[in-house]
Design a protein around this nucleic acid. Sequence first.
DNA 1: TAGATTGTTAATCGATTAACAATC
DNA 2: TAGATTGTTAATCGATTAACAATC
Lengths: 233, 233
Amino acid sequence: MASSERNLQTCEVPDATVQRLPLYLEKLKLLQAIGVEDVSSRQLAESLDIKASQLRHDFHYFGGFSRPGRPYRVEKLVTALEQIIGVDRPVPTAIVGAGHLGQALANYPGLQLQGFPIRAIFDVNPKLLGLEIRGQPVRDLDDLEPVCRREGIKIGVITVPASSAQEVVNRLVAAGVTGLLNFAPTELKVPGHVSVRHERLTVGIMALSFKVKCGALARSAAGNEPGPLAGSA
Amino acid sequence: MASSERNLQTCEVPDATVQRLPLYLEKLKLLQAIGVEDVSSRQLAESLDIKASQLRHDFHYFGGFSRPGRPYRVEKLVTALEQIIGVDRPVPTAIVGAGHLGQALANYPGLQLQGFPIRAIFDVNPKLLGLEIRGQPVRDLDDLEPVCRREGIKIGVITVPASSAQEVVNRLVAAGVTGLLNFAPTELKVPGHVSVRHERLTVGIMALSFKVKCGALARSAAGNEPGPLAGSA
DNA sequence: TAGATTGTTAATCGATTAACAATC
DNA sequence: TAGATTGTTAATCGATTAACAATC
């Protein structure tokens, strides 16, 4: 118990584990919604296509979700994971850049539902200032600092062009934002107390392209090119 | 050389390496654009915040980008990586689901620029059928198969609700699509020759939330809460 | 030549998986 | 009890890093 407390505080949790926590939470919430009360590590792991021992190993960093012999209580697990991830209370979030991607994210219900309500949207383009998305007006970038402070914004979503990303980030950090979700294709310099996560849309599609190309090569080498209708589920 | 050919064909390349290839390509194209002709593994690695030995190790799976003693030629490397990733010629891509996210992706210039021209957009909503995005009309989902075949669509981007994702995927696969970029929060069943990549927006923001929360805990434990203006770059 | 660079292998490091005692 | 389950440690596996010969 003492060691799991230390893990929580110093965050000595592997990144690979951290990335799986949201998947666990998502699946558990789904189970909760259909009225499932108990779940074993094997059931939960199988539904996520991972090994049960990996799931238990992940949970072990935080410790004490159940006792040997007893399966997990879905509700307890949801509560615990929400606390661990930090979405046990809403995390006020702002979107900077109300172009196509920014608007899409502002409209996406998942963010609000998962605990990240959009409390502010900013853009430099005066033509967008009239626009309102899910009850939030697009505001002038000039108002960034006072609005972010007033709303207690914790996370900033960067959907501005790469050329203005760093300046926007500096202002968000100065206004007290400590987490940045960066969709701009550029590196960002931030002070040590700020966390950044890059979301690169083109990395995903390129990695996919590589696999597609390799699959095609492998099949043509093996000489068993499937007809377009073959094998469809 | 024989072993690197085998790697190319059977794709025995670690996923971690595959995910870095697009980053290398992106940075190299940037260097090319500003007229840089040569680059060393150290320079390139440093600009991406990785170790030079890792970069050389990655390149070694494909082999023969330079000779000992000579730095890499930017142009040769760009060409080679484009071929390896499979973007040396355009990869016809379709977007299924023209809601906010689908429209944002269709409008995103990066996809076209990186080698993935959007050659078709589909939706079930009749109200969207008049819409045209960057020269592509939103088409009726009923026309999916003939249009995908005619345009030679290789990659399908899934931006429909989770409830209809599997059906859309079945139809895309039947129409000859072999790569799927899935934004719907659901697992997909596909035949073996099809590659799927999940893009989970909420996983990214939740992992970020975890790090933010841990950072706050660590600082409050250490008792050195920085003022909101401290340390800003 | 001397210093710098790549390609390639070996060493290290970390993450995943297996195993099993304790428990229900 | 017998079968199933968790928490926890050890074994395995794979990825990253270091080292260095060959080369410019």
